[in-house]
Write a protein that binds this DNA or RNA. Structure first.
Lengths: 247, 247
DNA sequence: CGCGAGTTTGAGAGAAGTCAAAGTGTGTGG
DNA sequence: CCACACACTTTGACTTCTCTCAAACTCGCG
């Protein structure tokens, strides 16, 4: 279990996306401020995943919590009818598996999106740690709460926004997430193709392509390959305003 | 702060919806198994709300956690563009305000949906309690995790389902929630009108009305006033299956 | 009785999906 | 080094679903 500190790349294109431990959701668990120096980290294993490899799936017992260290995770949710839908992409520093605490069973799937590296803590172990360490407990609460907020916002976006608005919101949100990680929020790599982008937004890849083309035609974004550049964030924000206000 | 134990009404029409403390998300906090009998409950106040009264709103400092004791709460989320959208209705026993732990600020609005009664614990107080009581900590984790699961599922439904499927899913889900509370999951009161039902599903009230009419025409449901009776749950489930499987 | 809020139904418009074809790279093997 | 295959993207034409606007209907209530 490496403790190597990877410096935050400032405004670097996130080609090999990786994030510092300091910016990771596991930080308090992994490098407890309260622990004596040299104490073993409670994080059990760093695991490397091949593209498309499954990290866990809904129904799996003996769940673990995972922090994305490098690359991306794709979260899928089983729908009541039986098929599965990608609902979110996790970036380095994000945490997966929080939905397993209530039942002791994973409720979603996590799949490596490209090469991916994760840090793992088994949930049973975390429960024991938490019982004796209020700081870890509090850190978990913050993780849960932040995640909850993100999901509520996503539900609101899906319920309330048109295709154009969902995509504008997605681009701005992705920029914000990169910025929070110390990268540029205006120029970054979109780590997924049109179809993969469309899925969690509840759209088709053709619609995504059309909307991106129209944003490009209006000079609000630049886009070649996976490289996105937000030229006019204010204009994208403007799309999100309800019609009455936009006039 | 009353500790009256309200017995679970078995298969009663949830006219005056109320739930036993035993089925409440606060139970461990409110009636700690570890506490000596007669010790004061950490729950600070039982509060009564008039219809439409605001319990908290996004941005509010000094947040509290609330358990719905009787009636319903409506959760609204501010959208990035500025307006607000109802994203969920909370039933007796549900908990509101979990999204405030990460930032110490409420991230959503909660509004009484009809007459409503809630139990409250200030977050700062819960944080202190949690630091010394691992059972409360664990209970909080279960609450968070279960909520997370519900939101993820809702996002998947919104991203992946048609109007008809969303409504079938909503009816079955509402039935499940009543069943979990000891009421009938087949016959219950829908506590909201068409427009209020449409909002968190990302639909219009006309679409909801049309789909309900078609379900009724197929004898899958019965519906008069707010009273819903699910006559053919299997048929509703069938609507949720992806087209390839349905044949 | 008549009002108002909520519901239902209809007709037409518009947004997004579907199907299809062409365009753009990118990597591989001859 | 070129040719080809393949995956992804873009664009177009058409279809379908849901929204919008409008009107009629129901029901409880003053």
């Amino acid at each position: 279990m490496s403790r190597a500190y990877v410096p935050i790349a400032d405004h670097a294109p996130a080609a090999r996306a990786q994030v510092a431990c300091a910016a990771c959701g596991f930080n308090e668990m992994c490098h407890p401020a309260s622990a004596p120096p040299g104490a073993p980290s409670p994080v059990e294993a760093r695991r490397r995943l091949a593209p498309g490899e499954e990290l866990f799936h809904a129904g799996e017992r003996a769940p673990s919590l995972y922090a994305v260290h490098a690359g991306f995770l794709k979260i899928r949710m089983p729908l009541p009818g039986g098929d599965r839908r990608t609902v979110r992409y996790l970036f380095p520093g994000d945490v997966a598996g929080l939905d397993a605490f209530a039942t002791g069973v994973h409720r979603s799937d996590a799949i490596a999106h490209g090469d991916c590296e994760v840090c793992a803590i088994p949930v049973y172990r975390l429960e024991i740690l938490a019982d004796f360490n209020p700081r870890i407990c509090a850190q978990l609460r913050r993780l849960f709460s932040g995640d909850l907020d993100a999901w509520q916002r996503q539900a609101a976006v899906l319920a309330g926004f048109s295709a154009e608005q969902r995509i504008a919101s997605f681009l701005l949100d992705t920029g914000r997430r990169w910025r929070e990680r110390g990268f540029s929020g205006e120029a970054f790599q979109l780590p997924m193709n049109r179809a993969e982008m469309a899925e969690p937004l509840g759209l088709t890849h053709e619609t995504v392509s059309r909307v991106l083309s129209s944003f490009r035609a209006r000079d609000w974004i630049e886009l070649e390959g996976g490289a996105l550049c937000i030229l006019d964030a204010a204009a994208l924000q403007g799309v999100l305003a309800p019609a009455e206000i936009r006039t």
